[in-house]
C-alpha cells in the first residue's frame, strides 16, 4: 500500500482531491506543509476527509500545524498526528511513497 503525501492547501490546488480520488482503500494520506489545512474541522473539505477516513488512514504533521497556528484540538477526529520521526516510520511502513505535488 502506498503512502500518499499532500503538501498543498485544498483551497489552492486539487492535489488532495486527486489524491483521494486515486488512492486505494487501505492506503495512507500524509498531510504536510500547506496540506495540513485539510486536517482541520469545519472546512468545506472536512466531509471529504472524514469520508476518506472510512477506508484510509490520514496523518498530519504536527510541526506544520503548529507553525501555522492551527490548534491540534481542532483536527478532525480519526486523523493521526505525527512528528518527523513518525513521518519516517510511516514511509518505512508503507510499500512506497507517492507525492501529489
Amino acid at each position: 500500500m502506498l503512502l500518499h503525501t499532500v503538501n498543498k492547501s485544498p483551497f489552492e490546488k486539487n492535489a488532495l482531491e486527486s489524491c483521494l480520488n486515486l488512492s486505494k482503500a487501505g492506503s495512507g494520506v500524509f498531510l504536510l506543509e500547506d496540506g495540513v489545512y485539510a486536517a482541520m474541522k469545519g472546512t468545506v473539505w472536512a466531509d471529504k476527509v472524514t469520508t476518506a477516513l472510512s477506508d484510509k488512514k490520514v496523518y498530519v504533521l504536527t510541526p506544520d500545524l503548529a507553525a501555522r497556528g492551527m490548534n491540534t484540538d481542532n483536527v478532525i477526529d480519526g486523523i493521526e498526528m505525527v512528528d518527523y520521526a513518525g513521518f519516517v516510520d510511516l514511509v518505512a511502513e508503507y510499500s512506497a511513497t507517492q507525492a501529489w505535488l
Binding site: 503525501t5 503538501n7 514511509v91 518505512a92 511513497t97 507525492a99 505535488l101
Partner: peptide, 9 residues
Amino acid sequence: ADRLVVFGD
C-alpha cells in the same frame, strides 16, 4: 534505496 521520498511543489 528501499524508499524514495519526493519533496517538491
